[in-house]
Design a protein around this nucleic acid. Structure first.
Lengths: 263, 263
DNA sequence: GCAAATTTGTTCGTATGTATT
DNA sequence: CAATACATACGAACAAATTTG
């Protein structure tokens, strides 16, 4: 009972890729060559190639050919946060420090500061009225020159009025905003809650991260909400990472140091 | 500069879906109807529909039609672990308790116990020689009847020889294996390290979780390695969750209780 | 710099098979 | 069994992107 021909062709090529016979970066036979090799019409071999493209095994470049996708060396981010100092998870300066510690070069764009009204999800996280004014601080991060993460932090506007002026300055806050708020307003972060979810990328994420335009590569969104001593949330940070180049580690209790090596 | 016709048709349908004009579960016009509506050939409207299928917006059922995919109510798992008692993160009985607490019905298959040789990644995590014998305990979990996660825990065979007989019995260990090992062998878990990654599902995962066969829905793999007081790892658990129905929460420090509501 | 050759992208027409109602 | 709807396959033509001579 033969399966569909395009399927058999696709499986044949898949095996060649997975066995390494077709190495990452290598060019596949052209559609015309495949047409002859499998004695099928061009549209049928194109269906087979589409099957591979949709699974992220190959990519086609008009005018050039079809190529086996290169695999990306994943970067490992430690999410474990010190509830006091602020955090350690892909946030602020701590993020950069972790990158350089792994022998890679980290860069970050200057913060983009905006005043916005809180939408439903944010208002819920910060336990404020929908439509309340919030400060948004946005940064893009790069590792070895490739886009690595986008981060947006939200603070109730009230904090600025109470004296945290630096929040609305488009400059890095070297000591970290959590530390800054503790020093300036005496708001200590006694705990935080991370929420992790995975979803398809939106248009802006596709272009910034240079993801395939078929939406195959998802993004991880980590929202971290910081809580003050009285139990009220006072800031939330959303970090967006493409799943094809990122892994995460959480340490609890006493764990030995170890270079985080991807699997 | 008109884009390709299949693209315009796809965008048109996408907008109808995203605006809610085509509700989840609703049936799209048939290919023949779309052919008339857009004055394109059937192959062209099929290309448009394929574009939507590859993004997971619709699904086609031979003999029936094309339907807008239903969105799934995500389940929230708390990963925060107590380094002592064991854990809280989607593991063992604790997992079941969290599910029922959210007013859902949890089930788990009886454990499948196997003796295996450790492969490279596992040997690295457990810091043992590659090829060393390990006990593997595998379980599948369901929430409200739908497949939710697959979990496989690995223990060095040595633990069984030292007296932890229950590890190789195909029965639930109600108090949890971490507690059991502490009671039986005096091995206390003083810390653990979680590693989170996202990858496409393999064949077994596609069939168990009933994922679309185009590999669009990725899975989250969380490996949790437990460390004893002397700093050596003594167990690793791999948990696999489909990303379309799961979110995760990590609490650090003092955070207020709050019903975990998906965004 | 340009034209030709190569390679993938889009569109149509047509025929037949398979699954469901 | 018949009607309906999607799945597979072939052939053909032209367009667009890229490389090559």
């Amino acid at each position: 009972m033969p399966e569909a021909m395009y399927w058999r062709i696709a499986q044949d090529l898949r095996k060649e890729i997975e066995s390494g016979k077709l190495a990452p970066g290598a060019q596949l036979a052209t559609e015309l060559e495949l047409r002859e090799r499998y004695r099928a019409s061009r549209n049928t071999v194109r269906d087979a190639v589409k099957w591979l493209v949709n699974r992220g095994l190959v990519e086609t470049r008009p005018g050039q050919g079809t190529f086996v996708v290169e695999k990306i060396e994943p970067f490992v981010t430690t999410l474990s946060a010190d509830p006091e100092t602020g955090l350690g998870g892909g946030e602020g300066m701590a993020a950069l420090a972790e990158v350089t510690a792994q022998g890679r070069k980290a860069e970050a764009s200057t913060p983009l500061v905006e005043i916005q009204k809180a939408g439903t999800p944010l208002a819920e996280l910060l336990q404020i009225q929908e439509g309340t004014q919030v400060v948004s601080r946005h940064q893009k991060r790069y590792i070895d020159g490739t886009p690595w993460s986008m981060q947006t932090s939200y603070y109730p506007m009230e904090l600025v009025l109470r004296g945290a002026q630096k929040l609305i300055e488009a400059t890095d806050i070297p000591e970290g905003t959590v530390r800054y708020l503790a020093d300036t307003l005496g708001i200590r972060q006694v705990g935080c809650r991370d929420r992790i979810m995975v979803r398809p990328p939106n248009e802006g994420e596709v272009t910034f991260f240079r993801l395939p335009d078929n939406g195959r590569v998802a993004v991880v969104v980590i929202s971290r909400t910081g809580y003050a001593a009285d139990g009220t949330p006072f800031r939330t940070t959303f970090s967006v990472f493409p799943v094809d180049r990122n892994q995460f580690v959480i340490n609890v209790g006493e764990v030995p140091d170890r270079p985080a090596v991807p699997t």
